[in-house]
C-alpha cells in the first residue's frame, strides 16, 4: 500500500553490516537510495552494527524531529529485540530521545508482503518454468540461536502455498538444521526446482556455502565467483534442473517492504497516539 509522504520525518534503515564484506550493507544503501528518490521523507539514512555509521552516531546525522527506524533484518531476534533497542536507546514502539521521537518498526523480513517478493524472484530466476511442474524451496541458515529466522521462512512457505501461485510444492530447508538444503533433490517431487535464499544480503552463505550444499560448486573458497554464481541458471544437477537466486534482501522491491513497515507502524501505533 502506498504511504503518504512524510516531509518532516526521517527514515533510518538499520542493517548488520560487516567488517569483511561490503556486499553485506550494499542492499541497505540501495534501498535507501530508491526511497530517497521517491521524496517521501525529509531524509533517509542507513546505520549498522558492524559498519559506519554506528547506530549511536546515526543520531547526529538526523535533522528531523521524528524518525522511523526500520531494521533490515530477516526476522525478529537478538538484533531486533536486544541490540538495536539498546544501541538506539529505544524503550518501546515510540521513544523520545533528546528531543527526537523515534518510532521502532518491525523488521522487513517479517512483513507479509515479503511473499510477493519471493514469488517475483522465483519468476525472474526461472521465467519459463511452469509453477505446476516446479518445486520452490526457501532456504535459510537455521540455527538454535534464532528460532525466529526459521519460523519466518515457515511462515512464507505457508503463505505461498495458500497464495494460489500454483507451485507443485513449496518447501523450507536450512543449512544447519533439518530439513537440510543439501538434500534438495530428494525433497523436491518435480524435476524443476527453484531455490531462493531468505537472507538480507548476499554474502558467504549465498555465494559459497549454499552453492556447495546444492552441488553447484565443489568446495568453498575461490571457486565460488561471487555474483556470477547467480548467472548460470539453470544448473543440470542430480537429474534435476536447478534455478538458484540471489538473496531475497537484494530484491529491488524490498524498498517497498521498508515503506510497508512504516505504514503498518502508523496503523498499529499512531492512531493511539493522536
Amino acid at each position: 500500500m502506498p504511504i503518504a509522504p512524510k516531509p518532516h520525518s526521517a527514515l533510518l534503515i538499520v542493517g548488520h553490516g560487516s567488517t569483511g564484506n561490503p556486499d553485506s550493507s550494499a542492499p541497505c544503501f540501495e534501498h535507501a537510495d530508491a526511497i530517497r528518490r521517491r521524496g517521501l521523507f525529509a531524509e533517509v539514512h542507513c546505520c549498522f552494527w558492524k559498519e559506519e555509521p554506528s547506530m549511536r552516531e546515526a543520531f547526529y546525522m538526523i535533522d528531523s524531529a521524528e524518525v522511523y527506524v526500520v531494521p533490515d533484518f530477516i526476522s525478529e531476534g537478538y538484533f531486533t529485540q536486544d541490540v538495536i533497542p539498546r544501541e538506539l536507546q529505544l524503550t518501546g514502539p515510540t521513544t523520545i530521545i533528546r528531543g527526537k521521537t523515534f518510532h521502532y518498526c518491525l523488521p522487513v523480513g517479517s512483513h507479509p508482503s515479503m511473499t510477493r517478493l519471493i514469488l517475483r524472484r522465483a519468476r525472474e530466476v526461472a521465467p519459463d518454468a511452469d509453477p505446476a511442474q516446479t518445486t520452490l524451496i526457501i532456504t535459510g541458515h537455521g540455527t538454535n540461536l534464532n528460532p525466529n529466522s526459521a519460523q519466518a521462512i515457515r511462515d512464507q512457505v505457508s503463505r505461498i502455498a495458500a497464495s494460489g501461485a500454483g507451485y507443485a510444492a513449496v518447501l523450507d530447508a536450512y543449512m544447519e538444521e533439518p530439513p537440510f538444503i543439501a538434500g534438495w533433490d530428494l525433497m523436491a517431487p518435480t524435476t524443476q526446482v527453484i531455490v531462493v535464499p531468505f537472507f538480507i544480503a548476499d554474502g558467504l552463505h549465498s555465494y559459497q556455502d549454499i552453492p556447495v550444499l546444492l552441488g553447484i560448486e565443489k568446495e568453498t573458497g575461490a571457486a565460488a565467483s561471487q555474483r556470477d554464481i547467480f548467472r548460470h541458471n539453470p544448473h543440470h544437477l542430480r537429474d534435476k534442473l536447478l534455478y538458484y537466486s540471489s538473496a531475497i534482501g537484494t530484491e529491488r522491491l524490498l524498498a517497498d517492504v521498508i515503506l510497508d513497515q512504516v505504514a503498518d507502524f502508523d496503523r498499529m501505533h499512531k492512531s493511539a497516539l493522536t
Binding site: C47, E52, P53, E57, A58, Y60, M61, I62
Partner: peptide, 23 residues
Amino acid sequence: LDLFYPAGVGVFLAHRNDTLEVE
C-alpha cells in the same frame, strides 16, 4: 560526506555545540 565519512559532519556539529555524547 555522509557516505565518505559517515555521520562525520553531524558529529562535528554536535561536538561544536557541546551536545555530543562521547562513548
